[in-house]
Design a protein around this nucleic acid. Structure first.
Lengths: 341, 341
DNA sequence: TTGTACGCGTTATCAT
DNA sequence: ATGATAACGCGTACAA
């Protein structure tokens, strides 16, 4: 059983009294081998505790059973949850997943490119809109790849993300349903494509409710807590106050809440606030934040499924898969207060 | 340059006008090859864009350059931060890291065991005190392994964790320095060894301050938010109130804070609270939680360094590496109130 | 200092 | 249905 050296296909063949070719067939194409023979082989496998040597297999096949997952920041809470989806899906198809993080450093990106070139990974999952390989990118032969969250700016690389427009629409619709009309959108059109889409959802919702542009307030931030706080300050100074703040992401929403509380206002009595993402701390805020939840595990699962399809079929089935995010109603939204503004 | 098929060692040899053996030597034992030859080889490598085929190399060498990291739950915020340390250290030594999560499911654990057996990983990092391989564990030949956070109950497997006793001591010392004497320890001696050690730190601190056992309150919980809340209820019922709650982990502390606030008390005016771990939401609590921070990235780095040492030396340099955690002072601790209790 | 040749464990081709 | 054998790309013992 537990010898010093792992059993090889030859050990199995000897014990089962067949050739190594038959053993290989019994494992990978069971229908092409006689029942009685297959039985003998299976017994021999059980006796020896044989496991296919993945290195030899990969060498022969010319491809590994590993998927490289590259993210700019592993520590990102978004990352770990998507990882779960990725890992489950990969594992259930016999693939393992390799982790890499670039910290937005081109040098490290290059290392991963070498990694890919040395055949260590059959496919690539990218957590960023840009290829992390610097200027070498152009000459690089990438394996089948799939982006997560954002389209990869290289063309031809499919991606799995969330329907930001529909998600934002859910938030603005809730606000409108609660009776709000003067709703500010605290946005960030520069950083990510997803963010401009969220704004589109906001506009669409306002349009649908026939709320005129004179009631729409747009603040251009940068998606950080600080920019949320700043938005509040600016809006107060300009004396153009909304009854609700719809924020492009949870970070901004947290900043808005901080700013509002600093001025002594109560949320949601005086102002309603919504976020987007449902970061882990959203539920711990006071009040807990009403937001749009990213279906993280599902995103991971779909991205990996797409990649595996690519790996077998060769052709990209779809260029873009958008999942519908959920509205998570908590305590930061209520009907608008009666204070005149 | 970017041909259809990757360059092999043979391509390099042909261009450099040497044998493949010389190319291999030029790469792996540069000092054993003539300067002029090495130069030719390096040029040929540059021209072809050659990268060693890792599969072939691993097959030949009998070991891969992958480290398998197995955790019960990838989503755990502790995990991702340690992962950063692990990854950085591994990568800088030419190793890649593979992720697996078991969800405490023995079946999945077995899959990883097969993985290991098929030579796909040269080493193993374990995030749990128990081997996740079910009863097969005994017969299994494990590769060099290192535990993280907790000792692995198998013997002979070194681990890297945190000095829980010293960490807890920092918390209790702070409380005592603020003037507290009647300090409750809300613990959990069943779940993890680390937790009992934290209690030892508490006792040691109380001993050092010569605070008698009649002023020590011990509540046995289970490390969850709910158990923290429950502790408060019980202590109020028993009418044995401390001025400070020292909690075995942040979850418990959060529960305690919820319980205290539900009864209308102010923290830290009426009661002080400390946690342990510094989970991401600790800073977002109101008040923000004073706690002991796990040096997560450092733990990962040390664990991987230890494993790599094991991989090359063969012998475990140390059985146990304990890192010193930091006290993070925030706003949940102040001097005890004057209310008589 | 350099080259030749074998073997690592597998899968695929071609016979039988 | 099964077996013999050639490759996959590399590292190294041995020979030169």
């Amino acid at each position: 059983m537990s010898n010093s050296t792992p059993a090889t296909i030859e050990d199995v063949a000897r014990i089962a009294n067949v050739s190594i070719a038959t053993v290989s067939r019994a494992i990978h194409m069971p229908e092409k081998v006689a029942n009685s023979t297959r039985l003998k082989v299976n017994q021999a496998i059980a006796v020896t505790g044989y496991t296919t040597n993945a290195m030899a297999r990969s060498l022969r096949l010319g491809r590994s059973n590993m998927i490289l997952v590259v993210a700019p920041d592993i520590g990102d809470p978004n990352f770990s949850n998507i990882l779960i989806g990725l890992e489950n899906e990969a594992r259930s198809h016999g693939y393992g997943i390799l982790i890499g993080h670039t910290q937005n450093d081109a040098q490290r990106g290059l290392e991963y490119l070498k990694f890919l070139n040395s055949n260590q990974a059959a496919g690539l999952i990218l957590f960023t809109g840009i290829l992390p390989f610097g200027h070498q990118t152009m000459t690089a032969r990438l394996p089948p790849s799939v982006g997560v969250f954002e389209p990869v700016f290289n063309g031809g690389i499919p991606y799995v993300g969330v329907d930001d427009i529909a998600g934002a629409r859910k938030a603005v619709d809730l606000l409108i349903a609660e009776g709000h009309r003067k709703i500010a959108f605290i946005g960030d059109s520069r950083t990510r494509l997803a963010y401009s889409r969220r704004r589109m959802g906001y506009e669409a919702g306002m349009d649908a409710a026939e709320i005129g542009t004179e009631l729409r307030i747009l603040f251009e931030g940068d998606g950080t807590i600080e920019s949320g706080r700043l938005a509040v300050e600016q809006l107060f100074m300009r004396d153009t106050l909304p009854t609700a703040f719809m924020c492009v992401n949870d970070q901004t929403a947290i900043g808005v809440m901080i700013g509002l509380k600093a001025r002594g206002y109560d949320i949601p009595r005086d102002f309603s606030v919504t976020g987007f993402d449902d970061v882990p701390q959203a539920v711990f805020m006071t009040p807990s934040l009403t937001t749009i939840r990213q279906p993280r595990t599902a995103i991971g699962k779909h991205a990996m499924a797409l990649l595996l399809e690519l790996l077998s079929d060769g052709q990209p089935p779809e260029a873009e898969i958008l999942l519908l995010p959920d509205l998570v109603v908590r305590n930061s939204v209520s009907a608008p207060s009666r204070i005149r503004r």
